[in-house]
Design a protein around this nucleic acid. Sequence first.
DNA 1: CAAGTAGTTGGGAATCATTGTCAAATGACC
DNA 2: GGTCATTTGACAATGATTCCCAACTACTTG
Lengths: 132, 132
Amino acid sequence: MVEAPRNTRQRRAVVAILEDLDGFASAQEIHDILKKRGESVGLSTVYRSLQVLADAAEVDALRNDDGEVLYRQCSAGHHHHLVCRSCGRTVEVEGPTVERWADKIAEENGFQDVAHTLEIFGTCNSCASARA
Amino acid sequence: MVEAPRNTRQRRAVVAILEDLDGFASAQEIHDILKKRGESVGLSTVYRSLQVLADAAEVDALRNDDGEVLYRQCSAGHHHHLVCRSCGRTVEVEGPTVERWADKIAEENGFQDVAHTLEIFGTCNSCASARA
DNA sequence: CAAGTAGTTGGGAATCATTGTCAAATGACC
DNA sequence: GGTCATTTGACAATGATTCCCAACTACTTG
């Protein structure tokens, strides 16, 4: 039988950070924040915790242009993201039309096990005015 | 004034490979193919050539699930891809509705300099039947 | 064609995110 | 408190990609 995961200080700390953040953040950023708060957690452990959470679909993961993986606690259900390149602030968006379109395209071309990635990147208005 | 790029054997070889391939391939795969053909080109040079081509929008680049960057010679103009996970075979697709949707979402939320990524991944029918 | 010059190459080192390793630490349960 | 499998953390290892720089070569000019 599969054992239940343990409730450790480290895992709780990672989850707590994700609850505080409203945008996407990398594993390393989360590690830094933990260190600043004095709730130090090993980097490996941060990576592991995020992986577990992502596998359980409790957080969403995506890659930025640099290929880094960013994580964020999101609402349940399929959705996409409008992400600020500079601060990570994120708006969850839905596009039912897009979903249907993607499935139709795939079916028309005989593809199976279809998945799609769709993210919108931009500069949010506060970052844009800060830069000016 | 900016100098014109030189026409070197190595760059020609990389372009030739891209013309032969019909799916996405990684820099390392292209490097391997060149080696097999006896037209050896340094790995660094393959990376550089692909970067140059991508910057000039002569090839499209995307990341697979593993975070590797894949390259492919594509038709001009904005389009998206339906990519086979296992063989890389690719169908170019257009989704004007999606473009408008993404722009509208971004504008409604006050985001600027908007870009979006959209790729559809699946298993093409020949790979699916080969697996069975 | 010869020489000059600046863009280009290659291969090995360096980078950087991420994963693997394994002994020590610690939740969960008795 | 004792037991034990899970988890942690420091460090090594990996792997794609970039950096570095001396040797090379595609163009230009005489």
